[in-house]
Structure formats: structure tokens, C-alpha cells
Design a protein around this nucleic acid. Structure first.
Lengths: 229, 229
DNA sequence: TGACTTAGTGTCCAAATTACACTTATAGTT
DNA sequence: AACTATAAGTGTAATTTGGACACTAAGTCA
């Protein structure tokens, strides 16, 4: 493996599977491609990795450039390297997994790019390249992680109610949960701090607001605590 | 993200964290580097991805070229892309995770390369590049997966005993397990087929041999069964 | 045949999980 | 002011699961 013989080199990109949740169905952020190949088709946000930035940095940069999103939960997902996944030439893509909290006031995640759009998970169009496969991988990861790590809070506003949290779990995992058992379990972790506020939003009893306590989660983790819902 | 402007390109490699188990401690396969940089130091087996092969193919090829191993359990682990992880130039490495079954007769995994050596997990030397970090990531993955997926069998010979399996779990997870509870749990899955053979290996009662039933696992998985030890 | 070593087995108690129905607080309507 | 509609919030009993625990069985070797 000497450097005296150099292979012809492929290109390296990052692509992001961005999830959002507005209280209804799980959503994914896509952008409409402005250039060939696949011009006009929908694709995951992403782009080329430049030589002076790490993969994480490239993912954050592309996300901001293409969708305006900042301060998102971001984690590496999987690297896709099939030989012909890009029709132009060899391109390997490091896929990322992002969770976006809805804007404090609109309860919906916002973007400032006009070629970006949120799609309900049940209404995803055909995507460019192998992005449908990447998305599927991301969805599988989300479902897996939601059960074993407290990442659901990354999809909710800072202050949220237990019914909101339960709807998120039901929506992502695709099964109904018993209200009493869900609350009992979630509250038993001691990771939710009840606030002096309630959320009024209809002709019915208002719901207690909570916030997640990340510091306490870190502390518990070091004691061998395992989150599981 | 047009192709009209081309970034200078880095190189792409694969590196493999190869685990083995011989009944004692967990082991890792390393190779001694023959060329600079880090000449003479120990490193993970791996090398450059060529443009006409997928990442998985590259990992399999490098593993065979450098260690002689074939038919191993191989799975992508994580992609390491810090800017200066290689002192020569930008090199991004897709790390793989491999489990090797010991040879049927020697009960120890064999390799035919003389610059390759198995190291006990407790006696790993300093490694070249960022390979210590990659190894740490691999070990974390192994510990995580062992609890939730039936991959322990990939580290044991085709026919194995329950005490062997238990020692593997204890060795990897680092805690002692109750013999009766372990057997009860493992056998309750119905994934182990008892053979008409016992393993005699000392002045004591011989142990029942079993083999893992992968087809049954696939079937159970489709019914929503979750493996967990 | 006796000593030694590891394989193999069952029960009881504690803890966790599940199923399940009514009361409470609010907004809107009359 | 009273009534209606709606979603929030609460406890208990039954079942299942997990964990602790000690002896017998089958072989080898002296």
C-alpha cells in the first residue's frame, strides 16, 4: 500500500437524513436539485467534502448552506460506496443523521431555503442517486435509537408535554402505547423536569410542560443506567 | 455543488478491526507496518479502496491480502475523517468490524501472514495513525451488539458448548454471569440446536455441543422477536 | 475406588411489565 | 351559569420476567 502508485481517486460527499416532527407525522427534509444529474428531482441535502474540513464539519456546513439549519443534533450514519451510485464517476458518500427541533413558536421546524421542503414520511417521492436507500437506513437508525437513547427530545421543542412525547414515540415506532404505562416509565427515569407552566391548546384540560435534563442523563449514564422505552 | 470546480481530492482507505476468541481473552488481529509512515509499528489491517470495488469488497480484499482470512463476518463500523489523521495527506478511512471463527481443530483463529499477530485485548500496543481510536470504537460496537444480536456465534466454532458461549459473553462484557440464568435465557430463544455429540476436554463431565440456527433466527426476527441477553 | 474438575439442573422471591376505567381541567355553546 | 365536548391525568391488581442460590452428574487420573 505504498503511495508510489496512486489510484485514480473518487470524490467524497456527505448527505444528511434530516428528521423533524410537528406533532403529527414524522417528516424529512429534502431539497430539489438545481443541476444535473437528477436535475429537478428531490434529494437529501449534502455536498462535497473539502480537504480542510472533517466529515462532521462538512455535514454541518452543507446543512446550513442548503437548508439554513443550525444547532441540530447530528451523528454519522453509514457510508455508501457502491461503485456506480453516482452516474458521473465514483463518489463515496458519508451519510449523516440529523434531528431538528421545531421552532419555539411555530411548533414546526423552519428552513430559509426555498428549494428545501419537508415531506411526511409516508409521502416521500422517488429520490436521486441511492438516497432512498440512505433514507431507509436513517429511518431504521432513528427507530432503533429512539428505544434506547433519549433522543426523542431532539425532535421536540425545549418545553414539551408528555402527550407530545408519547405521540412522537407512537408516530416513529408505529404502535400505540398505553398512556399510563408510558408516563410511569418515562417519569421513573427522573430525566424530565416539570416546569411551572402548562400548555393550553384547546377546549380541554391543559398539559404540564417538562424539559429534558441532559446533565442528569450524563450522570446516570456514568453509573451504568440504561435508557429504554 | 457543480463538477466544474473540482476540489483537490483526498484518498480513501478501509481498515478492519478483527476480533477473535480462543476461549480465554478476546483478541484482536494487528499487522506490523512494513513501510513509512509508522514503519515497524502495529496497525489495523487495511488499505486503499480501488475505484472499481465497493467499500465492502475493498475490506474483504484487504483482509485476505494482509491476513489470509476469508469467510469472516464483516460489517461497516464508522468512517474516520479527521483532517490530519494521516501525516502524508488527507485520508478518510471507512472502518470495518470483523468477527473470525476459530479454526475447527485448533480452536484458535489462524492467519497465514507472518507480519500479522493476535493480541489480547488487554495487551494492545500503541497503534499507528488513529487506529487506537478506531479499535476503541470497534470494541464498543462489539459490546453493544453482543447483547442485542446473536453475533457471539461468529466468534465460536461451528459446534460449541454453553460454557464456551458463556465464557465469551463474560470475557467481552467484562462481568460474571450466573450459569443457570444464562442457560435458561439462551436456550429459551430456541436458536440453539443440540447435537448428538459432546465435547470431552479434561477430567470432568463432557459438555453438550450445540450449533446456532441462523434460519430460525431470520424467521423469528420477521415476527418481531428481539434477541437480548 | 476415591479425589478432582467442570457440566448440568429447579425453585423461590423481587422487580418489572401489562391491562384496564374513571376523574379533572379547560373552552365553547346555549 | 350550566352544560357539553375534549384531552390530561391518575392507581391497582395480575402476570411475567429477572436474579439469587446449592447440589448432583459425568468424566479423568492417581
Amino acid at each position: 500500500m505504498s503511495f508510489t502508485y496512486e489510484y485514480p481517486r473518487g470524490a467524497l460527499t456527505v448527505d444528511c437524513v434530516v428528521f423533524g416532527f410537528d406533532g403529527g407525522e414524522l417528516k424529512i427534509l429534502l431539497i430539489q436539485r438545481g443541476i444535473a444529474p437528477f436535475k429537478g428531482e428531490w434529494a437529501l441535502p449534502g455536498g462535497f467534502v473539502s480537504p480542510d474540513e472533517s466529515l462532521d464539519e462538512a455535514a454541518l456546513r452543507e446543512l446550513e448552506e442548503e437548508t439554513g439549519l443550525r444547532n441540530v443534533f447530528l451523528e454519522q450514519l453509514y457510508t455508501f460506496g457502491a461503485v456506480n451510485r453516482d452516474p458521473r464517476e465514483r463518489v463515496v458518500s458519508v451519510a449523516y443523521f440529523a434531528l431538528v427541533q421545531p421552532d419555539e413558536h411555530t411548533t414546526e421546524a423552519q428552513t430559509d431555503a426555498d428549494d428545501a421542503r419537508w415531506f411526511q414520511i409516508s409521502e416521500i417521492p422517488e429520490l436521486a442517486f441511492d438516497h432512498s436507500e440512505i433514507l431507509k437506513t436513517g429511518l431504521k437508525r432513528l427507530r432503533g435509537k429512539l428505544r434506547y437513547e433519549p433522543i426523542g427530545f431532539e425532535l421536540l421543542p425545549e418545553k414539551f408535554t408528555l402527550p407530545q412525547l408519547q405521540r412522537l414515540y407512537e408516530s416513529v415506532l408505529g404502535n400505540e402505547l398505553d398512556k399510563r404505562n408510558f408516563r410511569k416509565k418515562v417519569l421513573s427515569f427522573g430525566l424530565l423536569i416539570p416546569l411551572d407552566e402548562k400548555r393550553r391548546e384547546g377546549p380541554h384540560r391543559p398539559a404540564q410542560l417538562y424539559r429534558f435534563d441532559p446533565a442528569r442523563y450524563e450522570a446516570l449514564k456514568n453509573e451504568g443506567f440504561l435508557f429504554e422505552i
